[in-house]
Simulated assay, not measured.
Amino acid sequence: MAAEPQTTDHRKRPRRRGDALIAAILHATVQELEERGYAALTMEGVAERARASKASLYRRWPTRAELVMDAVYSVIPDPGELPDTGELRGDLISVLTRTARLLDGPAGQALRGLMAEVLPSPERMGQVRAHAQGMGRQMMEEVTRRAVHRGEISPEALAPRRMEVGQALLRNHFLFHHEPISDEMVEEIVDEVLLPLFNTSPVNSAT
């Protein structure tokens, strides 16, 4: 006698709560972005893939944009885990290369889709900008802090706006040129823009 087929109804499975449920939903969102892209991503599709209820998604993320932002930034490495190459140039190349690889994957698809979706809303546009700038700034702050500790640059060189320059150049190229960011471009940004910038004090650079 043939065995009865196993049910796949998520309601029959052990219920997940808290961090486990959130992690499953964010992971499912990233997978949906990889396979379907931002435009085709739906809350229903994410819920089905995560074997969760739509209600559990909407309780935490009222909109698709908010869910996608959290999902994308859940896969970005912690700034404290960035490799230490022993020099500022190597660290800057490492940071910008990581950003370039992220933009070439689901994070890039999400960023393009989010920009188009939230552009009419200044409030939501501000949320996307805060997410994007915040993580990039943290990575730059980490590698420049190391450089100060090694004596490569002066603490006075770490003006807040300078922390955004490298990441902003990458995002600008990605959004407006629609092509992968090459290793050569990363090195050009580091050698021609960031290293001269961080080796100049704010007072001197303004004169």
Rank of each mutant, 00 (worst) to 15 (best):
Asp78Gln: 08
Ala132Glu: 13
Leu67Tyr: 00
Gly37Ile: 11
Val68Asn: 02
Leu82Val: 04
Met125Gln: 11
Val68Ser: 07
Leu119Phe: 09
Gly86Ser: 06
Leu111Pro: 00
Ser74Asn: 02
Gly86Cys: 03
Glu48Val: 13
Ser56Cys: 10
Gly126Cys: 07
Tyr73Cys: 05
Arg59Tyr: 15
Gln127Glu: 15
Thr99Asn: 08
Leu21Cys: 03
Gly80Glu: 04
Asp84Val: 12
Glu35Gly: 11
Leu88Ile: 00
Leu119Gln: 10
Pro62Thr: 15
Leu102Met: 06
Ala24Gln: 10
Ala39Lys: 07
Glu48Thr: 11
Glu117Ala: 13
Ala28His: 01
Tyr38Met: 10
Ala28Gln: 01
Arg36Gly: 01
Gly136Trp: 02
Asp84Phe: 09
Arg36Met: 03
Leu33Asp: 00
Val72Phe: 01
Val75Phe: 00
Arg98Phe: 13
Leu114Glu: 06
Asp91Pro: 01
Ala55Ile: 11
Met135Ala: 12
Val75Ile: 14
Met115Asn: 12
Glu66Ser: 14
Pro77Ser: 07
Tyr38Pro: 00
Ala52Glu: 03
Gly86Ala: 07
Arg64Leu: 15
Glu35Pro: 06
Pro77Thr: 01
Leu33Phe: 02
Thr99Phe: 10
Leu102His: 10
Met115Asp: 14
Ser53Ala: 14
Leu96Lys: 04
Ser94Gln: 04
Thr99His: 13
Leu26Ala: 06
Gln127Trp: 11
Glu66Trp: 03
Arg129Trp: 12
Thr29Gln: 01
Glu66Met: 11
Ile25Val: 13
Ala107His: 01
Tyr38Thr: 03
Ala116Val: 04
Arg64Ala: 06
Ala130Tyr: 10
Ala50Gly: 02
Gln127Leu: 15
Leu114Asn: 02
Gln31Asp: 03
Glu87His: 12
Arg112Gln: 12
Pro62Gly: 11
Gly126Ser: 12
Val30Asn: 11
Thr63Ile: 12
Trp61His: 15
Leu88Thr: 08
Ala28Ile: 07
Ser74Gln: 08
Arg36Val: 01
Ala100Asp: 02
Arg64Gly: 02
Gly86Trp: 03
